[in-house]
Amino acid sequence: SIGERMTPVLLQSKFRETGVITPTEFVAAGDFLVHHCPTWKWAAGDENKLKDYLPKDKQFLITRNVPCYKRCKQMEHKDNLEKIVDDENGDGGWVDTHHYADSTITEVREHAGQMESSGKQTQVTVEGNDDNDDDDDDAADMEEFERKGMINNDPLEASTTAKPSAGASTADEPVGQNTLATRTYDLNITYDKYYQTPRLWLTGYDEHHKPLSVEKMYEDISQDHAKKTVTMEQHPHLPGTGPMPSIHPCRHADVMKKLIQMVAESGKELEVHMYIMIFLKFVQAVIPTIDYDYTRRPCHVNHCD
């Protein structure tokens, strides 16, 4: 964007005063994340899109193939778990929907576990689940590209027929072993030069690892945030021109600043290298069913009231 091009690179640290970070601080916080949570890796991206204010091999962070077992609307909405992290300016703020629950993920895993042990899938009723509408067409299309008369000639191949995860239930799909067909996401964290904060991008894939349409990806974004917090834009480091959903960074610095203040009030100091780890925790509210955060919850953020 023009705004991004016109904005000079932030050189002086203003983290404590405003919650924004410099590219150097972004790299330090990224290094810290990659070191403590190696599911995240640095990426270089498209060579033609290198940003000179970041090291060549540390342009953005990526984690791949993150499972997303169920849709947001399938999540039980429990009001008593909610906590408004930032409600001062009255337009919603960040609703941390699982502030008091240990983790959504445990719940989802249990759910997945139940389906495994019961052998037969549990039918989960989902309103407006239209995943199966065009199955007949798909089958005809696929048949056209199948080789007739060729059977499985490999006796040492284990059966991998995946069972569908919740919300993707297809009654006639054979139930196999140990593999759960689930949506997955690739998540990227870039440095947003204009807002001077990290920015999270999402690419979703269906149970067969085909790209999800934007509409389907919206099913995995908390309805409180879907229309106002998530925007579609061109990824700054990847090839192509397709718009990709990203969590708009306009509020990130504010939230961060509040967290810094809260921590300061409790007599501690929030270090800048923790920035991305903490960032990942507050964006979880926007994408509550994407199971990406494996870092320990820093206690001073958990009890910041």
Binding site: T160, T184, P239, G240
Partner: peptide, 15 residues
């Protein structure tokens, strides 16, 4: 017995 690979394209590959 062995589990075969399951192919996974990144959208960027197609671009």
């Amino acid at each position: 017995k062995f589990v075969p690979y399951s192919s996974a394209f990144d959208t960027g590959f197609w671009h």
